[in-house]
Structures are given as C-alpha cells and as structure tokens.
Design a protein around this nucleic acid. Structure first.
Lengths: 150, 150
DNA sequence: TGATTCGTAACTACTCTGGTTACAGTTGAG
DNA sequence: CTCAACTGTAACCAGAGTAGTTACGAATCA
C-alpha cells in the first residue's frame, strides 16, 4: 500500500549523490546518469525536494541542485514527506462500505486508527536515518568511485 | 510503496464480518453487500485468506466462509501477509542504477536495509492488533446492528 | 434432480508510474 | 549582447496494477 513507486528510493539516491560534493551544483543530466533514468524524472523529484526545502536549485549554465542543509540534517522521513506527501502507507476501501451494516458502518474508523499507528511506526524508523548515514554507508561499502566516472 | 490497494482493508472487513457469528458460514454475496463490492472481489480476498489458513470455505448450498480459528488468534499482520505476500512496503529503483557510479552501485543495498527496518516496524504494529480487537472496537463504536439488516 | 455456492477465467475501465520529447524562461560566460 | 547550458513544465505514451463485471464449470446440500 502507500504508493508502490520508486520515488523515495530515487530521491534518496539524488540526495546521496549531492552529498558527495556539498556546495557543487549537479545538473539533472549528470544525476540521471547515476540513477539510470531520464533527466526529466530527476527534475520532477528535485522539484519536490526543492518545494520541501531540502535542496536549492540554480538554473542557467553551470547550475544544478545542491543540498539546502547538511546531509546529517535531512532524514529519510523528510524525503518521504517531500515526495509522497501526507498520505498514509495503507488504504481504506475503494468504495465506502455499507452504512446499513454494523461492521460496514464502523470498520473505516477503526482501520484508520490501526493504519495510522502502523504508518507512524514506519515513519519513525525512517526518521532515524539521515542522508549522511546513507552516504556514509555507501562509501564504506565500496562506493568510493567518483559519482561521474570518466 | 507496497501495493497502494485496499485489499488489507477489505480482508479485515471480511474477517470482522465473519467474527460476528463464528461457526456460521457467510456467503460471498452477503459479505459483498457489507463491503459494498462485487461477490467475486470478496471471493478473491477469501481465497487468499483460505490459502493462508485463516478461513475455511464450504462450497455448495448453505456454504460460505468461516474463521479457521478464534478471532483473537488472527493478527492484522497475518491478514497483511495473506493478501500482500512477502513484498516490502517500499520499492527500490525501477531500473537498476548505474554500476559505474559510486553512489549508484551501492545505494540499492543500503536502501534495502533501511526499507526493511521501516517495513518491519509497520508490521510489528499490525501484529499487535487482532481481528477480535477490531471486532470489539467496531461493536463499541456503535456497530451493534446485524451484519445483514432486513 | 435442482438450487445454491465457490473458484476462476476473461474482459473492461480507470489510475498510477516512469519514460520521452518539446519548448519557453533563466542564467552565466565570453 | 549573444550564446550555450540548465531548469521547469506541459504533453503524450506504454505498461502495470486495481476494482468491477459477466460467465461458467464444479461441488454440495436438500
């Protein structure tokens, strides 16, 4: 449930990429090469990160995106909220259940509470990891090569 | 991420419905009326619950589904696993990232660990709620009417 | 035998997702 | 000032997933 997409994964990838050389703007075309996708897909993700205040973007020649704050101050929950919004990780019925049935009339409210608690648990876990943590682990795992090899 | 569907909600609804009169088989047509959907949709969900051993189904006249064990012995994590399978709540990249880039070559493994922890946190929350809990709260909220009103 | 019910295939309509092209607007360098 | 680089965004496409629907064979009970 939730979104069934790869936006969070791509967004974290982008931010980890930007953490390599903080302060140096990275063009969407270069990031897209690392992510293995189209530059427009990267720009869409970066746009959401920008609206959330996680990155700044400079248009024009020599421009690109950079981290708006230290990588250690950006949690994966920040990233999740930036690209997924406030929606829950779980979905209720496609059509509202029968209001005439004792179960149907109440199940929605009950499930909402349960799903909210489960979503929060997952989000708490995401909040405990920062982009700096991800970046550090990437490097320690052997990802020591430059982001854009020759 | 995950599945972005309403199967878990419908499945819990079905089980709460069955908990109303344990031992009495409920036909997919009656359950569908409460869920406000098509009987085939209910049969598909019930089929998954049956394969997971959560309900038993009796075909033929007067048949239907009933709980395979006490409602207090069925957690929402059991239900989640029954209808969603073992997949994670979060997705990695649609296309594998560039293996040439230091970030791209390692980000997958790092994210896998993070996402696994977050998924487990949500599943732990689901494991702490049983169908009996849901049923109890439905009744206490005023869902005292019969499952199938006249 | 006949009515009831399940299991499943097949089909449709709808939505979401990622990918792609195209293009106007902004920016910095020369 | 001019030009190349880069962003932001619209528009469109193909593929996948979802819920809903009809249909029908098989199983079951009275």
């Amino acid at each position: 449930m939730g979104a069934n997409n790869s936006r969070v994964a791509v967004a974290v990838h982008v931010l980890a990429y930007l953490a390599w050389r903080p302060g140096e703007p990275a063009a969407s075309e270069a990031v897209a090469r690392s992510v293995n996708t189209n530059p427009v897909v990267v720009r869409r993700i970066v746009g959401a990160l920008r609206q959330a205040g996680l990155v700044t973007v400079q248009p024009g020649a020599g421009g690109g995106a950079r981290l708006a704050r230290d990588a250690g101050e950006i949690t994966l929950l920040d990233v999740y909220r930036a690209v997924e919004g406030p929606q829950s990780l779980f979905r209720l019925h496609a059509q509202p259940p029968s209001a005439c049935c004792g179960v149907g009339s109440q199940i929605g409210g009950v499930l909402e509470g349960v799903f909210c608690r489960a979503s929060r648990a997952a989000q708490d876990a995401l909040a405990q990891v920062t982009v700096a943590d991800v970046f550090r682990e990437v490097r320690s795992r052997g990802g020591a090569r430059e982001p854009q090899p020759a």
